[in-house]
Simulated scan of single mutants.
Amino acid sequence: MISADAPNNYQQIVTFSDGEKLLINNSDLNDTIASFSPERNYPPEYTEAMSTTGYAYAALKEQHQQELERLSVELRIGLQAEAEARAEAQVIEQIQSLQNLYKQQKEQNIQFTAVFR
């Protein structure tokens, strides 16, 4: 029986029926032992639990990705709304400034007209 993890890819620790443990080269093992798979075999309920956990992880990962995308869209919308509000405030300020300038020009024209009459 192979009883412990192999120290390398070329040897195995083997326990014989009398309890003796030896380090054996893979090339010295017979075909039934040489065909030993290093993969673990789990009972069906363990395999099912691991699959369920894997699916749950994938679902959480997908949900997290969707939440990130939603937050990204909200951030873009918020930034766009903020930029639009700033631009609107600047336009209002410019219009007020132009109206004030127009009033000043109109008053100056009235004064010049009065002076040159």
Rank of each mutant, 00 (worst) to 15 (best):
I2A: 00
I2Y: 00
S3G: 12
S3N: 09
S3Y: 09
S3Q: 09
D5H: 13
A6S: 05
A6W: 02
N8M: 00
Q12T: 06
V14I: 13
F16P: 00
S17E: 11
D18Y: 02
G19E: 03
K21E: 09
K21N: 09
L22G: 03
L23I: 06
N25Q: 04
S27I: 14
D28Q: 07
L29P: 01
N30P: 06
T32K: 15
T32V: 12
S35C: 08
R40E: 11
M50N: 04
M50V: 08
S51E: 11
T52P: 02
A56C: 05
Y57N: 11
A58K: 07
A58C: 09
A58N: 14
A59C: 01
K61L: 03
H64V: 09
Q65T: 15
E67I: 04
L68G: 01
L68M: 14
E69I: 15
R70S: 12
R70Q: 12
R70M: 09
L71G: 05
L71A: 04
L75C: 07
R76I: 08
G78T: 12
L79N: 14
L79G: 06
Q80R: 14
Q80F: 05
E82N: 06
A83K: 04
E84Y: 09
E84W: 11
A85H: 08
V91I: 15
V91G: 00
V91S: 02
Q96E: 13
Q96D: 10
S97E: 01
S97G: 02
Q99W: 02
Q99A: 07
N100K: 07
N100I: 02
Y102Q: 12
K103S: 11
Q105Y: 13
I110G: 04
Q111A: 13
Q111W: 07
F112D: 13
F112W: 07
T113A: 11
T113R: 07
F116K: 15
F116H: 12
R117L: 14
R117G: 14
